[in-house]
Simulated scan of single mutants.
Amino acid sequence: MSDKGRNTAKADQAKGKLKETVGRAVGNERMEAEGRGDQVKGDLRQAGEKAKDAAKHIRKD
């Protein structure tokens, strides 16, 4: 994974987890849902970066 992609994915995941936790603590369902969405966004970005890395290794062989 590229450093930029890895950092962006981790940031999205962390932001989402924090937003979900705060939303749950204050009883804001919308914030909770947005937090889960941000986590999914980070997961997808991370999967995309891993796919790019896998494709690079395939091309080298």
Rank of each mutant, 00 (worst) to 15 (best):
R59I: 14
G27Q: 05
A51Y: 02
G16E: 04
G42V: 01
M1R: 03
E34G: 01
G48E: 11
A11L: 15
E20C: 07
K17A: 11
T21Y: 06
R59P: 05
V26E: 10
K60I: 03
I58W: 05
L18W: 15
E29N: 13
D3R: 14
A33Q: 06
R24W: 02
K52Y: 02
K50E: 11
K15E: 08
Q13V: 00
D53P: 03
Q46T: 01
R59Y: 06
K60H: 02
Q46A: 15
A25P: 01
T21W: 03
Q46K: 13
A54R: 05
K41P: 00
V26H: 08
R24E: 06
A51D: 09
G23S: 12
D3Y: 13
G48D: 09
A14P: 02
R45N: 07
R59K: 15
A51E: 09
K56T: 11
G48S: 06
G5I: 14
D12C: 12
E34P: 04
R36A: 10
A51S: 13
E20H: 08
A9G: 05
A9E: 03
A11R: 13
D61V: 05
A47E: 02
A33D: 10
A14M: 14
G5Y: 10
I58E: 00
K10I: 02
A51P: 08
A25D: 12
A51R: 09
V22H: 01
